[in-house]
Write a protein that binds this DNA or RNA. Structure first.
Lengths: 273, 273
DNA sequence: CGGCCAATTGACTGGCGTCAATAGGGGTGG
DNA sequence: CCACCCCTATTGACGCCAGTCAATTGGCCG
């Protein structure tokens, strides 16, 4: 604004990331197609249990089951995306960038989360989605969407429900980025991911896989890389959590929630496509 | 975080606002019921034109047409809300607060916008909605929602579409708050509102009603009241816009867009309930 | 071994928050 | 009709949180 040209050259990082594996260059191996009727994910307690008929209808929508390597661009900002997908395994994140290269991570995706709804109902994606770890996706072509609304109203309702859940999570992130200090913000993010992982039975002994780099943290929290790193260290010094082997262990989740003014959302079972 | 008790006592402001007109105390006058078939709003070019049958179906959903005074709480954070509504006239905003009283404005509502979708698909609202000006609402009881999905798939699709539109706007706000500087942020917000107003034929000579107080600006942008005020003044000194009589005039919208890295979204006609 | 990348840490800077004093408008009551 | 209050806004002084710059380390890989 004041200084126009000498923009914060975080753009460099962006360039670097750019040449990271893109969709094309990605090893897109061919795992076995997992039919929804035998999907281990949807059997988890976190998800709504549907009757056979509905599950097989969903299976009819599913056009492929793909695997991508960590770092792959699953959806590219500014392109038209003909599919939506449910994350079958792994982590991913939605993000949006400014022309100067600054990137904001909008939300994280965990197994069972549906992605591309926004992009799908609109014409083209205004955000990108990248794989944070190796991932597997259940692909649904978006042209079948209208069918869903016409032939399976209950499913359509689920779709809308998932969209609204996603929006609530972004609301929370916006609240965080706008109103919490750096440390509180980071704790709130970690707690949110912890609770979601917990709900998917991904937590053992208050410890879970935490694949974010410092750069991801910074981009999600609206902090600089350096400050994110410092905040991270200070939280460890405060004995909020420990980190080893890509696994993060919360020392005292409930006490930590108070510190960050974190509030548990309602964790009712949710639909899964 | 570091200092727990001496929280930023912006809470005071909150208390003050609290005793402002609440839903109950609000003058909730009884304007004439506007049947959807004769709704002047939905005729605007911004909205999808529907056939008679669908419009009368929508009218069947509409249970009331209410007016609220500026400052009224339309939906209260943490309560169960049995209705959703379309904003028929006036401005409103969604917001979410931390226990220390800090408030984040999540998005603004202009005529034709649907509100309460998130709150409605879930059990209870995790955010509040306040009237920014005097408003009129078209009320739809949420228990009729399932009906919509079962009997009017096209309408259900519209609903989902509107939800996804809302999410895109929040994405943009999150990007702004997380990655733009104070001045860019403010310009981006103003431009966004300007374009939306323009689309509703609410702009004349690059000037439109701008009912936000400095406090609203601060809360929407994640800035302090004081800094928001200073940023506002500096933008005027830079001759970005002028302000008089609650009306804001953009001196050069297109040039201003470049300053703020603002990008026009796609302005296709959208559904309205 | 050398290059690349994520991460850490210190020193310095600057943007934004906080405190505080002041001004102006609108409503209300003496 | 003016006094008084409350609320919104403005402006300056000061301080701190977070950004920037830069040097260093350690892991991974060719």
């Amino acid at each position: 604004m004041t200084q126009d040209q000498p923009t914060r050259l975080k753009a460099m990082r962006q360039m670097a990331t750019q040449q990271a594996p893109t969709r094309q260059t990605t090893t897109r191996q061919m795992p076995a197609f997992v039919p929804c009727e035998r999907c281990p994910l949807r059997r988890k307690a976190a998800f709504m249990q549907k009757d056979e008929k509905e599950v097989s209808f969903i299976n009819g929508l599913k056009s492929a089951h793909l695997r991508f390597a960590a770092g792959s661009q699953l959806i590219q900002q500014g392109t038209e995306e003909p599919n939506l997908f449910t994350l079958f395994s792994g982590w991913a994140f939605r993000h949006k960038s400014l022309p100067d290269g600054n990137r904001q991570i909008l939300s994280f995706l965990l197994p069972g989360d549906l992605a591309g709804l926004q992009a799908t109902l609109q014409a083209e994606a205004e955000h990108g989605i990248d794989a944070l770890t190796d991932v597997e996706l259940c692909i649904f072509p978006r042209r079948k969407l209208l069918d869903v609304f016409e032939k399976a109203p209950a499913l359509a309702y689920d779709l809308a429900w998932l969209g609204s859940r996603e929006e609530r999570m972004i609301d929370e992130n916006l609240l965080s980025v706008g109103q919490r200090g750096a440390a509180e913000r980071m704790v709130a993010l970690i707690l949110g991911l912890y609770r979601r992982a917990e709900h998917l039975d991904l937590v053992e002994n208050q410890s879970f896989l935490f694949p974010l780099t410092k750069q991801h943290l910074a981009d999600a929290l609206g902090l600089s890389l350096v400050h994110a790193s410092k905040t991270w260290s200070s939280l460890q010094r405060l004995n909020i959590f420990t980190y080893a082997d890509r696994r993060l262990t919360l020392v005292n989740p409930r006490a930590t929630e108070r510190i960050a003014s974190y509030f548990d959302r309602d964790w009712r079972v949710r639909p899964i496509l």
